[in-house]
Design a protein around this nucleic acid. Structure first.
Lengths: 315, 315
DNA sequence: TCCGCACAGAAAATATCTTTCATAGTGTGA
DNA sequence: TCACACTATGAAAGATATTTTCTGTGCGGA
């Protein structure tokens, strides 16, 4: 009787514990999970993401026919998206449709074209990055995030691994953690990263940042840290990627479709930075007593690096 | 054949003939129709109006039990409200719930507090960064941007200066420019930066990124580049700051208020990245012929750094 | 007191969703 | 190149949920 289950869900007030079926974070979830889907499932997912309202009006059989697949596939897709079955996906779909209709219509974005005027480029980029942020926030598992924050706040030391664009995000996090008095490193050399990782032990934290989730140079140090008993966190756009094998906590970043002129690295960076910011603020909250004065001190220390006078600047 | 009779009844007396299933005007409809309902139906209608979200999670049987009536009554109520059956009422209910939920988000205007739950932190951060993006896009001078893009696209070489958080943005831009075949450097050592700047000449480009606009370590190399005749660009939050003295083109980033837990560096970074992305895409457009293959090649070259197998990933 | 009417619920009938299972396609290693 | 193992896929059986039908019950009027 999943009747009981449902009542418990309803009773508890809301986004239940474990896996809360995404309420409006559906579009994000579709994009995130699309790569790990089979062709048929992708067709279903696409239909769903493209026309939530229309699909909500359809029964399993209808949607199966529309997408040229079978009912089984539709149900499988619903499952993959985190719902108990199609019925619930349909409910969420109806909700999404209603939301879209009431004001926000974030559906259609045209790609950036080669001959777009610069003003359009600005508008489109800003819009897409906003979208990415919304998707990421909606899809972020706050339980995992909370666990990661707790581990970070208590860590003796923290290592952050990242390469390429993700390497910059790793450094960003490191800089911030250092500012609130934590001990953090972001080794940029993969060999150094592994060397560092060996030094970790239980109570320490290792964070791997990789969009694809399969960057060997980043997985390797995380694996070492994992085996040394450190708490490991993966920030990736692919929740099923190899890197998650060695991660105690997985934080998923959103994957928006990339276009020729807008490489995936761009949106993944935006997404990763938001996650990293959340981690930082979370840790700052937990360690407020020490974090606040440390932050203030770091500003203080930097003040003299800015020209005291100049231009007609204020203050 | 009292089937016909009933339909006629429902049609004529019935409040809902040509009424398309109410989208969100459901509560109103319930109130309007309540008087013409029987006791049992009223109980159902009341439950529905009182807790749309909860009822949406219930099946006919569940709702019947909850209201102490039978399934038939629930269906009858749904009919009276203008839906073909309970199924559709439930869908509308889910939509209503979603709308209500999305409508209720005034909490995010406030600053992040020390005791905010982690979910609020995520929402607030995402919201604020979205705001920052919108502000930046709105405030960006497209003429200046266009000029900077033109200069970049034609540059023999490009230097990008930045320190601290802005240094990461500088590196981000550099990485991207390198990917499309341009020659770019982002010296992280201030002394090296100046040394580099000396090598620039007319036709080259120097970009300084500094939020405050008064970071000596960044101004200095820009000044040198400026004096050597290079085209100089400043990306700063203070259009009147010292750094602009030596800038041919000034791109303004947005300055949102910072709070104790959210240092200015955070929003300025978001803002700077958007500007930098715009520059990149702009340049990629202008140099499309060479940029596109270069981008493709860089992906190609990286492919082998990703573990070929793993998870259930595709392709 | 009896009759008719409408309401309400039980149960049958139907539609819908879920699971299982066999098949075809796909990639892998010899 | 072939055989093998594996995965994805749809058909159909099985389980649930929804809708319809049907019958009993209470209330007001003759």
């Amino acid at each position: 009787m999943n009747q009981d289950v449902k009542e418990i869900f309803a009773g508890s007030g809301g986004p239940a514990v474990g896996t809360p079926p995404a309420p409006a974070a559906l579009a994000a979830k579709v994009r995130t999970l699309a790569p790990s889907m089979t062709r048929s499932m992708q067709r279903v997912a696409e239909a769903v993401a493209h026309d939530p309202a229309g699909c909500a009006a359809l029964t399993v059989t209808g949607l199966a026919e529309l997408t040229g697949t079978s009912e089984a596939t539709v149900v499988r897709t619903a499952r993959l998206l985190g719902y108990p079955g199609y019925r619930d996906l349909r409910l969420a779909l109806a909700g999404l449709a209603a939301q879209q209709q009431s004001g926000r219509a974030p559906a259609i974005t045209t790609d950036i074209a080669v001959d777009d005027p610069i003003a359009d480029v600005v508008a489109k980029l800003a819009y897409e990055e906003q979208q990415t942020l919304a998707d990421t926030a909606a899809g972020l598992d706050t339980v995992q995030l909370g666990a990661a924050v707790t581990a970070l706040a208590a860590a003796r030391r923290t290592d952050v691994y990242g390469i390429g664009a993700s390497g910059l995000v790793a450094q960003d996090l490191t800089q911030k953690l250092l500012r609130i008095g934590l001990i953090a490193h972001a080794p940029s050399d993969p060999h150094l990263a592994v060397t560092n990782a060996v030094q970790l032990r239980a109570g320490d934290v290792a964070i791997a940042i990789t969009h694809s989730g399969s960057t060997g140079d980043v997985i390797e140090p995380l694996r070492v840290a994992f085996e040394r008993g450190a708490t490991t966190v993966a920030i990736t756009g692919r929740p099923d990627a190899p890197v998650t094998q060695y991660a105690d906590h997985v934080l998923t970043t959103s994957t928006s479709r990339e276009s020729e002129l807008r490489p995936a690295a761009m949106s993944s960076r935006t997404s990763q930075l938001l996650v990293v910011d959340c981690l930082f603020v979370g840790v700052a909250q937990r360690t407020y007593e020490t974090a606040a004065p440390a932050l203030a001190a770091s500003y203080e220390a930097l003040a003299h690096r800015h020209s005291p006078r100049g231009g007609n600047q204020r203050s």
